[in-house]
Design a protein around this nucleic acid. Structure first.
Length: 197
DNA sequence: ATTTTGATCTGCT
DNA sequence: GCAGATCAAAATG
């Protein structure tokens, strides 16, 4: 009698899917970089077909990784200051990804506090630039595979009550504002901004 | 409580 | 030149 296949033998997330489908599935998943991180509580989807995406105008040196295979990290510099982390989605050549916007810190709080120069856990990873600083992301992570160290993704534990995902418009963009491609854990105190309705 | 400003990178016009 | 998938400190009401 074959026993059921261990969950670890199957990829945790199918990144070869549209980013607006991958983004909500990432909510509740634990993201660790060198053992530091926590539960993803906020994401945004971006896609080549849509003008808010870095890939909208085609491939450039900066966004080249997003045109590569899914399941890799796309890291970009935001406003000249911050490093932001994305997960590449869809088939190679498409140009789609999910921006990691906020994390509920659970692992390596001390290291995150040192990197951020802050104590309040609610401010450690509440925003894409803050996530980058807390996890010590920089250009060297661009293009790295997400299924190998230093990255680690851990499935969400089944919660009681079960996890509910809020949906809304993306933040900080001026084009394609109508797309409801921001996702977050309902009621989380670790979001970059609350969800309205 | 809301607005402004500085940080100063990347790609487009 | 300038706008942008941002954040924090400073100025202002």
């Amino acid at each position: 009698m074959p026993r059921s296949r261990p969950a670890a033998s199957r990829p945790l997330i199918d990144f070869e899917a549209p980013s607006h489908e991958v983004a909500p599935r990432l909510i509740g998943v634990t993201l660790l970089v060198d053992g530091v991180g926590g539960r993803i509580v906020e994401t945004e989807a971006y896609d080549r077909e849509e003008p808010a995406s870095h890939t909208f105008g085609g491939q450039t040196p900066r966004n080249a990784v997003m045109f590569g295979p899914a399941g890799h990290a796309y890291v970009y510099r935001s406003y000249g200051i911050h490093w932001c982390l994305n997960f590449v989605c869809r088939e190679a050549g498409h140009g789609a990804g999910v921006l990691i916007r906020a994390i509920e810190p659970t692992h390596g709080l001390d290291r995150m506090r040192r990197r951020r120069g802050l104590d309040d856990p609610r401010l450690l990873c509440a925003g894409p630039g803050r996530v980058g600083q807390a996890l010590a992301i920089d250009a060297g992570f661009n293009g790295m595979a997400l299924d190998a160290p230093p990255f680690e993704l851990v499935a969400a534990a089944e919660g009681h009550p079960p996890l509910v995902v809020d949906v809304g418009p993306r933040i900080g963009i001026s084009k394609a504002v109508e797309l409801p491609w921001r996702f977050g854990e309902k009621g989380s105190r670790y979001l970059s901004k609350p969800f309205r309705r």
